[in-house]
Design a protein around this nucleic acid. Sequence first.
DNA 1: AAATATGATGTTAGCGCTAACATGAATAGC
DNA 2: GCTATTCATGTTAGCGCTAACATCATATTT
Lengths: 345, 345
Amino acid sequence: MTDGRQSPERRRRKGSDSPTLSDVAREAEVSSITVSRVLNSPDSVRESTRRRVEAAIDKVGYVRNMVAGSLASANSRFIAVIVPSLSNVVFIEVIQGLQRTFEAHGYQILLGNTDYNMERERELVKTFFGWSSSALVTTGLRHEPGCADLLRQWPKPIVEIMELGDAIDLNVGLSHYQAGRCMTRHLLDTGYRHLVYAGTHMGGNYRARLRYEGHRDLLAEHGQDAPLLEWDDPSDFAVGGDALERVLDSYPTTDAIHFADDILATGAVLHAVRHGIRVPEDIAVCGFTGLPIGQAVTPRLTTIASPREAIGRIAAEQLIARIEGRPVEQDRVDVGFELLVGDST
Amino acid sequence: MTDGRQSPERRRRKGSDSPTLSDVAREAEVSSITVSRVLNSPDSVRESTRRRVEAAIDKVGYVRNMVAGSLASANSRFIAVIVPSLSNVVFIEVIQGLQRTFEAHGYQILLGNTDYNMERERELVKTFFGWSSSALVTTGLRHEPGCADLLRQWPKPIVEIMELGDAIDLNVGLSHYQAGRCMTRHLLDTGYRHLVYAGTHMGGNYRARLRYEGHRDLLAEHGQDAPLLEWDDPSDFAVGGDALERVLDSYPTTDAIHFADDILATGAVLHAVRHGIRVPEDIAVCGFTGLPIGQAVTPRLTTIASPREAIGRIAAEQLIARIEGRPVEQDRVDVGFELLVGDST
DNA sequence: AAATATGATGTTAGCGCTAACATGAATAGC
DNA sequence: GCTATTCATGTTAGCGCTAACATCATATTT
């Protein structure tokens, strides 16, 4: 009692009472840094020690506290992923590609959804920075100015996916402009002459607009103009059917509709079947994405397939390489696209 | 040099060099706990002080470090969410319901995917505990024994979704057994007498099996047996078409197929259209889920719709109430289901 | 006016882990 | 045999924040 250090009942923090590293260390008769090493770089610990520590971990039922580890190392194993929508299967498949790859390497995805709202993107970016994310995946190359500044100043790897161009850091995607051109070239080559482009929500979803621009430019080179039908609602089958009706009404000479996505195009096909409109004889339709449903309907849809899961996988592989300090061969990866010619054109 | 305390150049940690709470505190001339309060319970700070702190936050460009906060408070704002699959739209919609609700309250979802593998569930649970999650959402009531023990001992709120029954903590879902019975009653009432049930992956996806059991028991009450066709692959349109063929081959007297989900049933409808098989005259089909595609095909699918987004929303609301210490009216919420009678039966 | 309550802010001590450096033993080099 | 090198493990000091308690000023009560 000479120095009062014992402090009989000083303030107590709750402390989750579950076992910590030092409990394991005590049990294994090593220091806690050794336990930490067993967890993080097992090769740097002698095998006999490692086994003793692993036994102690099991015995005390230790569950690693990732939060403390992240704080101490200023690096979480979080990967921030920002997509514009979860209603669109495309992004789900990209997320699956990301998740499979990241999970295999011990990273956890933090998922953010902007609903095609650029301000939401900035908020999400700030939130994810606060979580000390190790890397960030975001959709598209266009960002609100404040958001772009934040991203540029962030010292960790970033990959912008889906589209190709002038990226902040890494870039994995495809040229939507070329995809639009490619499909329209197919339509012209097949003999269609009166084309209408139909899409939804083309303000927010500007990649659909890029495809339209490819379509429009190619038509311009052939001296044709490129009528465009737009809807504000998200794509669904009913909108596709509605589009077919509107085109037949408003542009009766049309012989092919270039849809912005397969949901719309499939909706048009199903509507045509229901109303005795022959596809492609009365009117041809084509889509974009390569969804299974488009390949299951009769007539089978002509579309452009993009390797969605591969985009996720490649993006994840690039980021893991960067995080682990390995070199990345190419900053920009063009995953390409494939024209699937079905029976609808 | 009497006590060596000065240590001219002691070890330095990297320290992310971005501004911290104390930078803000210095700028605003308050203590850091006051800044913390502005962030966490603004009402407990006088307005003039709060405004000064907020200005300082903007001035120094402070981004909150959630990791440090989580460690200090032993409570992250993470919600662990475990689903068996991301390929199935059902879970995507549930996740959307969860995410919308949680994001509005400042929680971040940690997403885990078991791929219908129960051991993966246990691993995910451990990982998520390590992230100090504030609550956990998991799919179904069946867990590997070790996982169930972990869950039971965990001191934070848990909700088991999709199915209804004997839950660990909270429970939001519907009775798949009753849904199966309901559909089969509809088939019998409509006059069908020779039924086959067809589903995929019914080991892992045992909720499809529960629906089959409802179907089987009702038929047993009518003195009929209940043939079952199973596939190991996940559901897709092709498997649905294949099922239709197999039933026509192996059970030629069959007048209705009860499919485990709408993907299969839609695949069967599309296959029938393609091959001139009349639905429901030659054979009736029905599904489960209420997917948009089932309502867009001709004939429109008879199915059972479940309120998937509502499951997510309600689960999230319950958890938020629990986390914030508010009472939860009922531990078990039956969201019910709705029979949608289409033209396929 | 003293006693008490209320409100706003501050002080202190960690949360559980890991970076950086330190130490000591075993091995290699000449 | 003595120093240099490698390997395995330990010591120390935080990472940036918040819980718990402490303090002080002001308002309210009696």
